[in-house]
Simulated scan of single mutants.
Amino acid sequence: MRPDEIRDLFDRELREHARPDGPGVRVERAGPVVRQVGGPDDWNGVVWSEPGLGAAGADAAITAQIAYWGGLGHAEFEWKLYSHDGPADLGERLRAGGFSAEPSETLLAAPVEALTALPGAEPPEGVELRPVTDAAGVELMALAHERAFGTDAGRLRHQVLTRLERAPDGFVALVALAGGEPVGSARMELYPGTGFAGLWGGGTVAEWRGRGLYRALVAHRARIAAERGYRFLQVDATDMSAPILVRLGFAALGTTTPYVYRAAR
């Protein structure tokens, strides 16, 4: 399939007909948008808007979503904007409505089969890729995440623990250990009924970068996705990871920018 065909399939299967990304959340069609709604520690936001959304419709939808999440008492929510969404000035309209743009990421996809046998995709010597299946594994994963990205992993802990307790079949979580110390971590979301699995959170601590661990984490998840019948892997990639993924065979489908609305305190 051409990249534009894969993008159209992605829009249809994962955005317009989105599934909840975990237990305790729901997906709703609200007029011209599709949104996910959960608790304060879940991801809350707009995942899709109608392709023909015009200026007046966009402004009305923005106002409606601010009122909706305000009524729930949530401190913040996100409008996940893609570069091919309309109208062309939707980002400017979101900013005018009080949203703040977070760093953009590149939307990438690749056929699963092309990634299952990447050359040099075994973990570096002395590194073990271990599935995360319990609270102890979650702590190791969270520690690797904090060391790799320099951010607090409190929300990650909550989300992975909840998934393990209530919906363990819909995702894969991994931690990379060297001498018992966490040096990397990664997740994969499985979207039943679609052709896609999503790669999330792949991170390596600074002293282990450049040794092939990131590649090994991608290939390991690709093999699991293939075993479960998925056709494509999808990634929202940072500027750091996008060049690596392109070298591994991923194609850019566009960009995505999180626009975050934070309620006044």
Rank of each mutant, 00 (worst) to 15 (best):
G201Q: 06
A237L: 10
L129H: 05
G193A: 14
R223V: 01
H145D: 09
P131N: 08
F149V: 12
R223G: 06
A167W: 11
T255K: 14
L190A: 11
L174G: 00
V175E: 00
S185P: 06
D236C: 12
G202L: 07
E227T: 05
M188P: 03
R147E: 13
V183Q: 04
F196N: 02
G212R: 03
D236Y: 15
G229D: 03
A225Q: 03
G198D: 05
D152H: 10
T162S: 15
L177Y: 02
R215T: 14
A173F: 00
F149T: 08
P258C: 13
G229E: 02
M141Y: 04
E207P: 09
Y259H: 13
F149H: 11
Y230H: 10
W208K: 03
E189I: 12
P168T: 15
A222C: 06
A197M: 01
Q159R: 14
A252C: 07
G249Q: 01
Y214I: 03
I244A: 00
D169H: 12
R147P: 05
G212A: 05
A226E: 09
I224T: 09
A222N: 04
A144D: 01
A178C: 10
A251E: 11
Y230R: 04
H145V: 03
R155H: 13
R215H: 09
R155C: 11
G170W: 02
A186K: 07
L177S: 00
D134M: 08
R211W: 03
T204Q: 09
S185N: 13
T194L: 08
L233V: 05
A197K: 06
G195C: 09
P192G: 08
V260K: 02
G154W: 15
F149R: 10
F250W: 00
V160P: 05
A251F: 06
A216F: 07
F196M: 06
S241F: 06
A216R: 03
A206S: 15
R130F: 08
A153Y: 05
T162W: 12
Y214C: 07
V246Y: 08
D239W: 09
G154H: 13
L174F: 05
A144G: 02
H220M: 02
R223H: 03
H158D: 11
R231F: 10
V172R: 15
L143D: 09
L174C: 01
G195V: 04
R155G: 10
Q159W: 09
A176I: 04
E181V: 15
I244Q: 00
G184N: 03
R221C: 02
E227Q: 14
E207I: 11
M188T: 02
L245H: 05
T256R: 13
P258R: 08
G229H: 08
L129I: 12
W200E: 11
E181K: 12
L213S: 04
T255V: 12
R247M: 08
L217N: 01
T204K: 02
P192C: 07
G203L: 01
G212H: 00
V235L: 13
G184S: 00
R130D: 02
V246G: 07
R166F: 11
L248W: 00
L156N: 00
T255L: 12
V175S: 03
I224S: 04
Y259Q: 07
A136Q: 12
R223D: 03
G154A: 15
P168F: 15
E165P: 08
Y191S: 12
D236M: 14
A251N: 06
A225I: 06
